[in-house]
């Protein structure tokens, strides 16, 4: 088999698996989408309407001179992507703990197609959920000042970040013993890391130790990039830092998932 031929087959199999994953998404629509949309929307409303007054007032100029809702929404979009980790980890775990993966493995299906389908499905879901959440944000008063190019940048960051988290969640789903365990394993991605970043308040307002962590962890440059792009503000090097983090997370998740996949065969 020539290399080109092998590549065509791998692409074909990955597309088949992606189609399967999209079908699953439609069948589990309520479970997957509602979870990944409802949680961020509740966070948005909670922080904007209930806590927003006090936080916005308290932040004053540290909210980078923008209304609190405009400060908040980029963080909510990042959380929306993070919330998608649960579905990816659960779906991978369901496949791995069920019998179907053994069937795939005894067929001449190109290696990696299954995970590629999961990751592709995860990225597409993230693009849909962030679009819906952006719509809700516009309804509650979010006023982005992004140019068409900035919007492309936003889509790029969302895609890169969801790609990275998808590989990481795929690995978590791979090593989990059950779907419930897989869900649990993504909770730090869904909540802990967003809270310990500049999602809701700037890192500069946090206590020293937490602040150091928030300033150096990967989610912060992602939020900062989205925030700058959506505000139509100069973005500096933050976007590169965000993309570099995404690449590192994606690679680590990829290697971990592959190793776990091989280890499953013993």
């Amino acid at each position: 088999m020539t290399a080109v031929n092998a590549l065509t087959i791998a692409a074909h199999d990955s597309a088949t698996m992606l189609g399967r994953e999209l079908k699953h998404t439609l069948r589990l629509f309520r479970l997957l989408f509602i979870g990944a949309i409802l949680v961020p929307v509740v966070m948005l409303l909670l922080f904007d309407y209930i806590l927003g007054g006090a936080i916005g007032h308290g932040l004053g100029d540290t909210a980078q001179g923008m209304p609190y809702v405009d400060f908040l929404v980029p963080g909510i979009l990042m959380m929306t992507v993070a919330a998608g980790s649960a579905a990816t980890a659960i779906n991978v775990s369901t496949d791995m703990t069920g019998g179907i993966v053994d069937r795939f493995r005894t067929m001449a299906v190109s290696r990696g197609a299954l995970l590629a389908g999961h990751v592709g499905g995860s990225v597409l879901r993230a693009l849909v959920t962030t679009t819906v959440v952006t719509g809700v944000a516009l309804l509650v008063g979010f006023r982005p000042k992004a140019s068409a190019r900035d919007w492309l940048g936003v889509i790029g960051i969302v895609a890169a970040f969801s790609f990275a988290l998808a590989w990481l969640s795929a690995a978590l789903g791979m090593v989990a013993k059950s779907a419930a365990g897989a869900n649990g394993a993504t909770l730090p991605i869904q909540f802990l890391l967003p809270f310990l970043s500049s999602t809701f308040v700037p890192a500069s307002t946090m206590p020293a130790g937490v602040r150091w962590f928030a300033e150096h962890q990967p989610f912060t440059p992602v939020v900062e990039s989205l925030r700058a792009l959506l505000a139509g503000a100069p973005i500096g090097n933050t976007a590169y830092l965000a993309l570099a983090w995404c690449a590192v997370i994606a690679l680590a998740g990829y290697l971990w998932a592959q190793a776990a996949f091989r280890r499953a065969a013993r």
């Binding site: 699953h24 069948r27 589990l28 069920g98 019998g99 179907i100 053994d102 069937r103």
Partner: peptide
């Protein structure tokens, strides 16, 4: 295999 290997969805 011994255990069902179908896609339940």
């Amino acid at each position: 295999g011994q255990f069902s290997a179908v896609d339940n969805l």
